[in-house]
């Protein structure tokens, strides 16, 4: 615990050093990831590890164009974008209903939505694996897009319910007196005002889908293989290609980090499902 402020200047120094240490602790693994991705296999397997070396982009060239990581990134992108769009389209009306309408069983419905956040994908993975085999959805983008709704849809519903609630009801009341239908109020009045929430929930849905491994690993072994599932295939075999693994990891992580930084102000609210403002 920090002591009571004695000398402010000294105190600021101590604080600055602490902040720097915290920042380094967070960032160092990324630094190591990127530098390793620029090492040849010979440099990567130096012991002790090298901090200074001649960087090369060979790992990126190889994983992208020879090992099929490029394709898997495209798969990841297709799946993440489609499931996010679908979740927004399906989830927004429900979020609006939860925020604005009174109806029986609302609590139970809401609880069901929220429980999906708790259910481990491993519970659904095997039944879905068998079902998808039977209905011919095995190893397709569609199978992943649909299964990712189990977590993207709740995210959209929670965040947007919160957002709709923050819109003053006077607006709805006025529109209702003018004779607007509920669909019209939702579409023309509330939706434009709820756009910040929609954006945050879309970014979070994208990040969660992009990061997912378990469903991808079990449901999409070949044609629809996503980037995280691709990354772990390098771990097999005798000579583990550190540089390639880290190049693939960098390619996977950079887009989500960009999104996360863009939404950094809303990330906490989103991740805690609106429990913390």
């Amino acid at each position: 615990m920090a002591r009571a402020a004695a000398a402010p200047a000294q105190n600021l120094w101590a604080q600055g050093v602490l902040l720097l240490l915290i920042g380094l602790f967070c960032v160092f693994p990324f630094y190591w990831m990127v530098t390793t991705s620029l090492k040849t296999q010979v440099v990567a397997l130096q012991s002790p590890p090298a901090w200074w070396f001649t960087p090369t982009l060979n790992n990126y060239r190889e994983v992208l164009f020879v090992d099929g990581v490029g394709r898997s990134l495209v798969n990841s992108l297709i799946v993440a974008v489609c499931t996010t769009a679908l979740a927004v389209v399906l989830g927004l009306p429900a979020a609006y209903a939860l925020a604005r309408f009174e109806f029986g069983g609302k609590r139970e419905l809401w609880f069901w939505f929220i429980t999906n956040r708790f259910v481990s994908p491993v519970v659904l993975a095997f039944p879905v694996f068998l079902i998808s085999r039977e209905i011919g959805l095995r190893d397709t983008h569609l199978a992943l897009i649909l299964m990712y709704l189990t977590f993207t849809l709740p995210i959209v519903i929670w965040i947007c319910t919160d957002q709709f609630r923050s819109i003053p009801r006077e607006l709805d009341e006025a529109a209702l007196l003018e004779g607007c239908s509920q669909a019209r109020i939702f579409w023309s009045i509330c939706l434009p005002l709820a756009m910040p929430g929609v954006a945050v929930s879309a970014i979070l849905s994208f990040i969660f889908s992009w990061n997912e491994l378990l469903f991808a690993y079990i449901l999409a072994p070949n044609a629809a293989k996503t980037a995280p599932a691709m990354a772990i295939t390098f771990m097999e075999g005798y000579d583990v290609p550190f540089g390639k693994i880290m190049a693939t990891s960098t390619l996977i992580v950079v887009p989500v980090l960009v999104f996360a930084l863009l939404a950094s102000r809303h990330l906490v609210r989103g991740l805690t499902m609106g429990a913390v403002k």
């Binding site: 915290i22 967070c26 012991s47 990061n211 990891s249 999104f259 930084l261 990330l267």
Partner: peptide, 30 residues
């Protein structure tokens, strides 16, 4: 800046965290 740095770990792909562990915690080359 520190707050921005804090955002990075929690957005990192979980699978990549495991791979980072493999690379940084390797007994000989880590």
């Amino acid at each position: 800046l520190t707050r921005l740095a804090l955002v990075l770990p929690m957005a990192t792909t979980y699978a990549v965290v495991g791979l980072l562990a493999q690379v940084t915690m390797n007994q000989r080359y880590g």
